[in-house]
Every structure is written in structure tokens, then in C-alpha cells.
Design a protein around this nucleic acid. Structure first.
Lengths: 141, 141
DNA sequence: TTTTCAAAAGAGAATAATTCTCATATAATA
DNA sequence: TATTATATGAGAATTATTCTCTTTTGAAAA
């Protein structure tokens, strides 16, 4: 992902383009395994030693509320961030902190069809996310 | 749920029966909408003004690791607790903190069948939980 | 019933992730 | 380039949760 692309994403959302925002968004894209705020801070401090912690959190909030990234919550403790915005699910390792994205349009259609006919009483569905818990049988590439 | 039942649950898990544990488990069952630790503390302090905060957290951990309650993580911030242990999904309100349980065995079977034939490469599924995000069309009874 | 002792609880300090405050700096627009 | 709303920096503040250490207690055994 080129910096120009990141810049355009920000412009599309009418967010001011700042070096901090570019650095943070770039970091989340590069650090694919759903980094924590701390991972991001560590990463960007290499090239941008002066970005304040509070700025990182503020930028993460801004990016998330403009749907440029997603917040991902784990059973464990801290918030994690995901650059992938297209609809997808998550694979959680039951033994470690590893999280992977899982995209499956066939499944999405199946669920959509299922709830279309069945529905949930007194509830209007907007989005469905699966948390698939289990074990990875290969280590990360 | 009678106190004797709660007591038996603890005994089954070989946990010592203490007034604190009974009070906390009872509180989670009564406060059904997935209380936070704070909700629980507020609730039990009425009848048991001397239960320490640390004790509540310790008891919650003990109950959760013995599968008498579940920890529920929200997109927002704090940990919440659920007395329902049978397999179920969650309905999240996109506008408030409300969370409800959603049990649907037909859906569970559908998912099981789907993944049985399809599978996920390099991943052994242990459990699947749906986070269904949307809006409640009725206020809570 | 009393004794025993591992396990649990109490108290409050400690920790750590996140947020707040507010002065300063900077992007975007005219 | 001047203007202005918006973003950033710095560090203090907040808050949920955990830790430490002492005291208490549940329940098994005598």
C-alpha cells in the first residue's frame, strides 16, 4: 500500500492528512496480525520518535469512527486494531493471542438467507460477525 | 435460583462454599443483562457491605475458570459476565450497552454442518460464537 | 466438637491501558 | 500568506483490574 493510497483514504473521509495519521494507518496495515496500541506505538516510534501516546489513541479512534480500521476485542484484555474493513470474521486461537481474518462470502450469504426468513424477534440485524475459536494447525507464515 | 442450587454448583466444581461466592454468583444470575464487575459490586454491597473489590475479581475469575459463568467482551470497554453457560450467541445493540443472549440450535446445526463439509484450512474449529449487531425494536421488559 | 490448614478474603497499594486537559502547532482554504 | 478549525504533544488523571501480604474461614480429620 503506497502512501498516496493512504493519503487518499484520509481525504475521502474528509480527515486532515497528517504525518501521524499516515504513519499510524501504515503501521496497522503492515503489522497485520491485529496489533495492539502498544505494537503500533513501538512500530511507529522507529521512524517518528515524537508521536505522543495520546495522539495514537486519538488517531485510532478517528480512523475507527471513519471506518478506515476496525477495533477488535479479544477474550483477553486489550483492544486490537484491524486494517481490513470489508466484512469478515475472525479466527481466535484458544491457546495464544493469535487472531486471523476469515473471509467467506458463501457463509455470509448463508447467514443472510437464514436470518432473512427466520429473523430475530424484536431485533433488527445490522451485521453479523463470527468468532471462530480453535487451534491453528500451522504456524504463521 | 435457590441458594441451595448455587451451593451445589460450587460443590460440584469442588470450590469452597463461601458467602462471598454465593452472593456474587447470585448477583450475576439476578442481574441478567450481563453485568460488569462494578454492577456486581454495587449489587452485593447492599447485603454484604464488606466484600472487598479484589475478592469480587478473584471470585469472578474462579467462577469463570470453573465454567460457572462466562466472560463476555464488548466492543466497548469493560469485561462483562454472563450466568448462562449453555452454548449461545449474543445480540449487541449498536447504540447502547445492551447485550442479550441468543440461543438457536437450528443455527448451531446449520453452522456445524457447513463447516463440517467445508472446513477452514490449517484450523481446527472448537467453538463458534456469533456477535449479532443491530437494534432492539422493543425496550427491555 | 475442636483442631488443623489449605484456600479464600480483606485492605489498600500497584499497575497498566486509555482518556483528559490545555497550550501549541499545523493542514486546508481563501 | 493569513486565517481558523482541527490535530498534536506532554504529562497528569482516570479507571478497571491485579498484586501483596496478613488475617480469616470452610470443611476434613481427630
Amino acid at each position: 500500500m503506497k502512501i498516496t493510497e493512504i493519503r487518499n483514504k484520509l481525504i475521502e473521509k474528509e480527515l486532515k492528512v497528517t504525518p501521524q495519521r499516515i504513519a499510524i494507518l501504515e503501521a496497522i496495515i503492515k503489522l497485520h496480525n491485529h496489533p495492539t496500541a502498544e505494537n503500533i506505538i513501538d512500530y511507529i516510534r522507529n521512524n517518528h520518535p515524537n508521536i505522543a501516546t495520546a495522539t495514537v489513541y486519538k488517531v485510532l479512534d478517528a480512523l475507527a469512527s471513519n471506518e478506515l480500521i476496525k477495533k477488535v476485542k479479544t477474550e483477553r484484555d486489550v483492544m486490537r486494531y484491524d486494517a481490513v474493513i470489508e466484512n469478515h470474521h475472525h479466527l481466535y486461537c484458544s491457546e495464544s493471542d493469535r487472531i486471523e481474518d476469515y473471509t467467506d462470502n458463501e457463509l455470509n450469504e448463508l447467514l443472510e438467507k437464514y436470518f432473512e426468513t427466520k429473523g430475530i424477534p424484536d431485533f433488527k440485524i445490522e451485521d453479523i460477525k463470527l468468532q471462530i475459536i480453535g487451534k491453528f494447525t500451522k504456524t504463521k507464515k
